[in-house]
């Protein structure tokens, strides 16, 4: 549906997009992730034909976005950042205007208007002036505008920015609903959002793609199976000392005192595959075990580790089209009262 090939964009001397390539297949919901200024919006603006690239190609539905701009615009629905709207219009006036420019006529026009008003829950506000609408409603008007012509590809630039948590959930559900009919590419820097809505993420940093794959697969790929996090009812120094003596600890990552005792995160040696020695040790010392977890890398960790390039060469994680997540190492015991003998 969308093919980006070796895309470059310069703003003057600034190299904003430095040769990115990715595909979006029909029916996917792809999250385009990256810190501010990474080149997400630029890439999207080029894909919808608002800007031109310095070099490279983008095709939508096998049509080149530059050569065949009009045809591409007809099959794309686009919600720019901050959902710009004509303030002096009412919701219906605005959507009718978009429908007219998009060339919808007669019963189809009426049907589509009715459909987007319904699906975006705009019915109660249809006669309201856009300038009186809350951010959430404005965003929905923007979404309605983007899907009114039933586009093959919907491109949404930060669809939930500036919304409150309830509105975010509403918009998210709406995007999922749109995703059932259309292919969706959305950008965001809210990780939870991408995890919740997208079947695949493309992470971009400083104009380069640093990761590409299903959210869970990316997390699994970064998960260190040797890291164990324990929450124990004991003093953190005691625990650190005892563990260092008896268990094959490679590194103590975190040791902090909490209201229940301490939380300690350790990396054990490769040879140490079981958590049993740690549980036994805690039981012997009479420490109450509140929890043992082998933490999975979240998308947040992936994001942080890949986009936080302070001087280090950038690593990247390309698992494109690898939808099968890795086996998740995940052992969890919540508040096990094993050591509660006292």
């Amino acid at each position: 549906m969308l093919e980006v090939r070796d895309l470059h964009k310069y703003y003057g001397a600034f190299h904003a997009v430095r040769g990115i390539s990715f595909d979006v297949a029909k029916g996917e919901i792809v999250g385009f992730l990256g810190p501010n200024g990474a080149g997400k919006t630029t890439t999207m603006k080029i894909a919808v034909g608002f800007m031109t690239m310095s070099s490279g190609t983008i095709t939508v539905d096998q049509r080149d976005v530059v050569q065949d701009s009009m045809a591409v615009r007809r099959v794309i629905g686009y919600l720019p950042e901050h959902a710009p709207l004509y303030e002096d219009m009412t919701v219906t006036e605005y959507l009718s205007f978009i429908a007219d420019v998009r060339g919808l006529r007669g019963t189809l026009r009426a049907e589509r208007l009715q459909y987007v008003l319904g699906v975006c829950a705009l019915e109660p506000k249809r006669r309201s002036g856009i300038k009186t609408l809350s951010k959430g409603y404005r965003q929905r008007v923007g979404l309605a505008q983007a899907i009114i012509h039933d586009p093959k590809l919907v491109i949404l630039d930060e669809p939930t920015v500036g919304l409150d948590p309830n509105q975010i959930i509403e918009i998210r559900n709406l995007i999922r609903e749109i995703g059932e009919r259309n292919t969706v590419v959305l950008s965001s820097h809210i990780l939870a959002e991408v995890e919740a809505t997208c079947s695949r993420v493309v992470i971009i940093n400083e104009g380069l793609i640093v990761a590409n794959g299903a959210p869970s697969a990316l997390g699994a790929a970064l998960t260190d199976d040797n890291v164990v996090q324990l929450e124990l009812g004991a003093d953190s120094c005691d625990v650190k000392g005892t563990f260092a003596e008896h268990v094959d600890v490679a590194e103590v990552l975190v040791a902090e005192t909490t209201h229940r005792g301490c939380t300690i995160t350790i990396r054990v040696a490769e040879s140490c595959t079981s958590t049993k020695p740690m549980i036994d040790l805690s039981a012997q010392n009479g420490w109450e075990i509140h929890g043992i977890v082998r933490p999975n890398a979240t998308l947040e960790d992936v994001f942080k580790s890949l986009t936080n390039s302070e001087g280090e060469p950038q690593s990247s994680l390309i698992l494109a089209n690898e939808t099968e997540p890795h086996v998740e190492g995940h052992a969890e015991i919540e508040d096990a009262d094993i050591g509660d003998k006292s």
Binding site: K45, G49, F50, M70, R73, Y78, P80, P84, E87, V101
Partner: peptide, 14 residues
């Protein structure tokens, strides 16, 4: 200023 140019210029009009 309002950014509507972006919507306008990505509609199928020249």
């Amino acid at each position: 200023k309002s950014g509507t140019i972006e919507t306008l210029m990505t509609l199928p009009v020249r």
